[in-house]
Amino acid sequence: MGAIFRIEGITKVYRTGDVEVHALRGVDLKIEAGEFLVLLGPSGSGKSTLVNIVGALDAPTEGRIYFGDDELTGRNDAALTRFRRNHVGFVFQFYNLVPSLTARENVALVTEIAPNPMEPGEALELAGLDVSRHDHFPAQLSGGEQQRVAIARAIAKRPEVLLCDEPTGALDSKTGVRVLEALDTVNSELGTTTLVITHNVSIGGMAHRVIQFGDGRVTDIRTNAKRIRPSEISW
């Protein structure tokens, strides 16, 4: 398999109020198709910014990014939207479900606009949500369940890449492991390239590679000779 993403000299500067924040100070990275990557690093080290740029939620200030052979940088909003719609799945720390839609409907929200989606029920099962919970509203689901709905929503379109920002950040260890198992299943069964941002060093053990961030730069890349299973992780 070749590189699914090529990232070349990416920088990102934010202006928040009067403050100028250098979120990324030059990042180069190649991501292979089907890879499970864990991105580690302290808050503000640039992990989320990079993932947002990879997922076309945000544009870099400088540098280039390629999806396969296609350059993403410099494309207009419509093209980026199309890219997200067809190729990228997101999982957020706080699930970001639409509160007025049930679990199944939250997934259907995406399958409706994707070109080759799976059935919402199938995606929910793959993400490990009990069938009896499929027609519950977010407010009726636990945090772990909500996160599994979010994963189902992200994978239902059969994306090439799944981007997860602190997927277990708001969950306890036991629930978090079940979410990680769902991600692992998706990665191995669908071959979806998966990027997981976390503060939790132990999660790095289940990755193919662990990317260490610090101060807007990649400070270390470690390849795991042997991957551990999610069930072996706890925190």
Binding site: G55, L57, D77, A78, T81, R82, R84, R85, N86, V88, F90, N96, L109, V110, I113, A114, R153, K157
Partner: peptide, 8 residues
């Protein structure tokens, strides 16, 4: 919604 791929 935009993140999920809905157009503006």
């Amino acid at each position: 919604m935009k993140a999920l791929g809905y157009s503006s």
